[in-house]
Design a protein around this nucleic acid. Structure first.
Lengths: 349, 349
DNA sequence: AAAAGCTTTTAGATCGATCTAAAAGGATGG
DNA sequence: CCATCCTTTTAGATCGATCTAAAAGCTTTT
């Protein structure tokens, strides 16, 4: 009888452990472990006894201990460039809901769109032993990054922006969205259309620019009326005049996102132009505010919540089968027509 | 010579461990551990050798293993009712930056403002062994909740909303904010002022309502013109007429938050009222959009990012000294005057 | 009654770090 | 030259779970 497991005399007040549960239910640690993990191996009566013991003792599973042995942390890292931007907040929301439903948790980090911080953050994720990462890569991410990921063999899915074709990607068909916007304006008779952009340069940026150019060119329209506005929200209205400083005067503008759209609506208003009457404007993202602004904003919807959900599903699939070939889930956009566009004919009236 | 630590012949391809580093640097595991933790006990030459070994082998610290022994996970839980709301996203951003700077990470969860989900989420946080939690309590959180927390002895700070005076709290002086808003409108000559509210009922809700009532009463004004508008952003504009369905017709409205404010600006516009001229309106939160909307929105600023920072600092303080008495950090609001308010005299012109 | 085949339970090693208590090495003092 | 003290290093136990391989109990077959 070499069993001296239980120093019950002077028990340290520390936490309730699986061993405590096992002893209370009169089974071995191993059996108790099986019960927790819902193994079919354990008998019904025993299972009930162990579960009762867990309840009585107020047992809390120690995932940290489990992970050490089992090599799974039930944790995924999410790295975004900026939390203040509602767009990423919605992405995050979609990710969180799917990850949560799968019984895992999200470890969050902010790269600030800076590669050095991104490196630091990725290291920290590895130290914390995340099972995988959903990353919206910082704009200046180097070309060696995918190789490093490969070496770490850390499952990773790219969201919104992509830097490698060898990894999963969940995003939006930005180019098609630009086509929808141009198509709508062209059908209203607009011939000179500007594209207002800002922010860092990344794949999503290129795709939108290219989409715009293509769509314009295919209609024989001048594709280079691209105007850069300030990054700071508060300065955007004041930059509306930039639209008209070239020789070609646009009758409509497509905006890189709705932050720009809202800002330019204000700025154009300040210039005495009536958006939706004497000037047309299309936003991108279709944020909630599009509906509560006057005129209501016509906008290309990108539904970031569902992109987040897609990204999370891709990651879960990959975790359950690491050998899957890389996949892309590219969502279609939808043009939401409201009040901010008028036909050129009307404008002349 | 009982040392058979190194089965180097057929090494499993698994991760690089501290033992590998130690052997490579020709020291013991214990010494290598001291180096990682930057202990002053270890000699300079030895430290350099170990650090070189870590670099050469590409060693990654295994926090999971460390936590098991050391009882600290370098992890804090953050529970918010809703991620889609930019207000919470900003709060989260503030929390993340401070927690990150302290070398810890954020585990995120969404309670959906539902107590059952909140319970589940709190359990999961405990399973993951977080060192502490920052919680924005769900509206219907029961009175027994603080006791349960106490039992778990899990450091917790309340953010934005509070349910117990025995725990740390970081928030905003909503009542004072309401006083500022009422004061501003009263000084412009407004006598009949409505308060537009929505959303779940919680401490921050009560404080705003009470603040409004008090401020109105102290000026001898009718304090009960409280109008409930829909929760869905898109339906708010259509509810603007609710403001005028009583016998007392307000000349101004204070809004519970800027989502309502933006919605009502649109709705009032639809009714033919000119906000900032024939009608006055004050928002609450001072979101970025306040500046890019026309008329620019006068709003009471609550700076959620800095509330998040305060909450995180409170938690870090508590972690380093669990015996600290409970503290409250209540930020002052600031009235940001823009264009959405006019004096009653002007309105009559 | 022994063998074979299930189902259920278990002892003991293990994951990768930290912690404790003590040993080893070097300098100083009597 | 040995005792004392200080600095640096270390062996071995430990945290709380999981995993492996085998044992213990049951039925069912032969």
């Amino acid at each position: 009888m070499p069993s001296e497991d239980r120093p019950s005399g002077d028990r340290k007040k520390s936490r309730v452990t699986l061993l405590d549960v096992a002893q209370h239910a009169d089974v071995s640690r191993a059996t108790a472990s099986l019960v927790i993990r819902k193994s079919p191996l354990v008998g019904a009566e025993t299972r009930a006894r162990v579960e009762a013991a867990m309840r009585e003792l107020g047992y809390v599973y120690n995932l940290g201990a489990a992970r050490l042995r089992a090599e799974r942390s039930h944790t995924v890292g999410v790295v975004v460039p900026n939390l203040t931007n509602p767009f990423f907040a919605e992405l995050l929301s979609g990710i969180e809901s799917v990850i949560d439903a799968a019984g895992m948790v999200v470890i969050l980090a902010n790269s600030g769109d800076l590669v050095e911080r991104q490196d630091m953050v990725m290291r920290r994720m590895r130290e914390h032993g995340v099972d995988g990462v959903i990353l919206c890569p910082a704009a200046a991410t180097g070309t060696d990054f995918p190789d490093r990921i490969e070496e770490w063999n850390l499952p990773l899915v790219q969201a919104l922006r992509h830097i490698s074709d060898d990894m999963d990607y969940a995003g939006v068909d930005y180019a098609a969205g630009m086509h929808q916007a141009v198509e709508h304006l062209a059908s209203l008779g607009h011939r000179i259309i500007a594209f207002a952009v800002h922010g860092p340069i990344h794949s999503a940026y290129h795709e939108r620019i290219e989409g715009f150019r293509e769509a314009m060119q295919s209609r024989g329209l001048e594709p280079d009326l691209i105007v850069r506005v300030p990054d700071q929200t508060a300065q955007i209205p004041g930059s509306a005049s930039l639209l008209f400083q070239g020789t070609a005067k646009p009758t409509a503008v497509i905006c890189f996102n709705d932050v720009i759209a809202l800002g330019l609506v204000a700025g154009l208003h300040d210039l005495g132009l009536k958006v939706g009457e004497s000037f047309s404007l299309i936003g991108f993202d279709d944020v909630a505010e599009a509906e509560v602004v006057r005129p209501r904003l016509t906008s290309v919807s990108t539904a970031p919540v569902s992109i987040g959900e897609n990204a999370a599903k891709l990651l879960l699939d990959r975790l359950s089968d690491p050998l899957l070939p890389p996949r892309k889930v590219v969502k279609a956009t939808q043009l939401h027509i409201r009040q901010s566009c008028a036909s050129v004919g009307e404008a002349v009236l």
